[in-house]
Design a binder for these strands. Structure first.
Lengths: 192, 192, 192, 192
DNA sequence: AATGAATGAGCTTTCATTCAT
DNA sequence: AATGAATGAAAGCTCATTCAT
């Protein structure tokens, strides 16, 4: 009974995501990942030459899933506002539904010793999102604002809201929080 | 020639902040901190019983400085809008001027295995800021929005902007970025 | 060329017995045991999770050998006196022939911080011996003496004699010493 | 209010006896002894140049007290048998009444890395006892037995009985145990 | 004489990585 | 391709000892 090729590899990745999130990169020995993946100690190193490569692989794996998710249903929306709202919701909901993956990315991004991913590469994954939000801004009163500032604000706020919902462990209504924060981002805290 | 009391302790803290930021908690051996602080290997453990306690001490040290800074000059401002603008600027400028400290806090917050600081304690340090922003919101069109959502959005956005300025390493005009992002937060990306 | 399984483990145990005896538990770094066993530093911890576990393992290993030895040839003896004499001789001769093991047990027993072995467990290993000596006593004039007192006296005396022969480093005729001490135990220093 | 000279020294010795017995030589840092003695860390080393010297000093201190005790009241006894009985009782009772000191000596004697005390020196402290027991033996049926064998048997048995009483923590009647074991030593387990 | 901050050698233990099977 | 025993470099931490005050 031969298992599917790649079975072991993806078992390792899945276990790694869970353990890294629960225990941190340095709190998770490779031996533990191997054991909980049901593979031999050395097998892990057949797939990932070093631990750092494993961490990077996990990062890219998650980033891929995130990107795919981000654009789900966006083209179905008619107005640009609805597209933006959809992206906003996709972004936060994915994190809330996949807290391990989300927290992994957070941890990875804050970790200084891990191989740095160039900023351009990071942005590339969000190009669709950037376009949509740029279009929204251009229609508003801040049309002259540098798009990159807006991108940072929007993206950071979404991450913050996601984290707050995850940390609340069910005590916050996610949909309501998503809705309110989106209005806040759109209308500002002051307007008048 | 006796050195000032506390000299060694604060030398250790300063070195720790720098090295932890440059190399991460786990990439920084206690021996390296001791050496670069100009103290003996065991001396570090006279002041901080374990490495984890050192990390936590550094965290609280920085949090203290940050809190002090946050409220600087706020009472001099007349309108509530100016108070909010001042806080926003204080927040970001502190991070830009003290990137090591700022990045340390980021790393610390994302680290899963480090002693968790209760959320209430974290918020307490920002009570003044929360009040001011609440007042601003109450005067705007989103008066009904839960203040905590606004707090998260504002705070996350400020952190994001700070990080983007630091990462740009001088290629971004900080004051301009602070100004624009503040307008964005106030007016929203869309407004009417 | 694969070595026999368990080779490394038993090499470690043998080295540990020797070094612990020569230098004491605390005078013997695990690294020294590993090196003199011809294994890597970490290998020792694959077999014994902690140093304390190694010490305990060595203790039980030796205790096992000692127990086996104690009863050798006893069933061949006809009279109960001969059985007792045989045990007495076995006991002392084993220590004289295996001074390292004997001294290890002495050191282990006197060590206050090592995991305590319950008294019952210790006695259990000598049950056969206890029975034989009890029978001897019952036939003598001290038939009413609590057996446990006799056990302690006999056992302690044997240990003392063993140690004195070892310390004399060949200057004492072991067989003569065994013989005389046995008569002393049987007849008493005074008799009638 | 000047304390008596030597107060600190004897405080250190007393604390050392207690801690060494409770925790072993290696489980007792000098800093702990100093602290619990109410003296400064460095003060201990004014009195005892090294830890090993402290351990040896404690040993000799205890040995002195023991020797003094051993001969108490012996000259008052008339018959040689009574002298022997008195010594036997003194020996065991001292250990039972001073378990810390007794166990310290046990631990010290079994410790291989501690400076060895020459055997002659050890015996010297018991010269009086040796004489008395020799006389007893000469009157018995084992008159030809080497005195040193008898000495070892008697001495070891006494130590064993002492330890058994201490270990029983009050569950054994000390006087009865002393009495019975003395008869055993005198009459032997078998006689007839 | 008394002190305690400072020290660094040395300890036990961990763990990413290798490699013979 | 899969394994897991073996490894040794490196880490955090302890503690006997020193010495300036």
């Amino acid at each position: 009974m031969k298992e599917n090729a790649g079975d072991k590899r993806s078992a390792i990745v899945q276990t790694a995501i869970r353990l890294f999130t629960e225990r941190g990169f340095y709190g998770t020995p490779t031996a533990m990942i191997a054991k909980e993946s049901g593979v031999g100690n050395g097998t892990l190193f057949n797939y990932f030459t070093t631990k750092e490569i494993l961490i990077n692989s996990v990062y890219h794996e998650i980033k891929g899933r995130m990107g795919t998710n981000l654009s789900t249903g966006v083209s179905d929306e008619k107005t640009i506002e609805d597209k933006a709202r959809r992206i906003w919701g996709n972004m936060i909901r994915w994190g809330v539904d996949n807290p391990n993956e989300f927290l992994f990315i957070e941890q990875f991004s804050a970790s200084p010793f891990i191989t740095k991913i160039p900023a351009e590469e990071v942005v590339k994954d969000y190009s669709m999102m950037v376009e949509v939000f740029n279009e929204v801004i251009k229609k508003g009163p801040l049309k002259d604002t540098d798009a990159s500032v807006a991108f940072v604000v929007v993206f950071s706020a979404a991450k913050g809201i996601t984290k707050s919902i995850i940390d609340a462990k069910g005590k916050i209504d996610a949909d309501q929080s998503i809705d309110r924060s989106f209005r806040l981002i759109c209308k500002g805290i002051q307007s008048e």
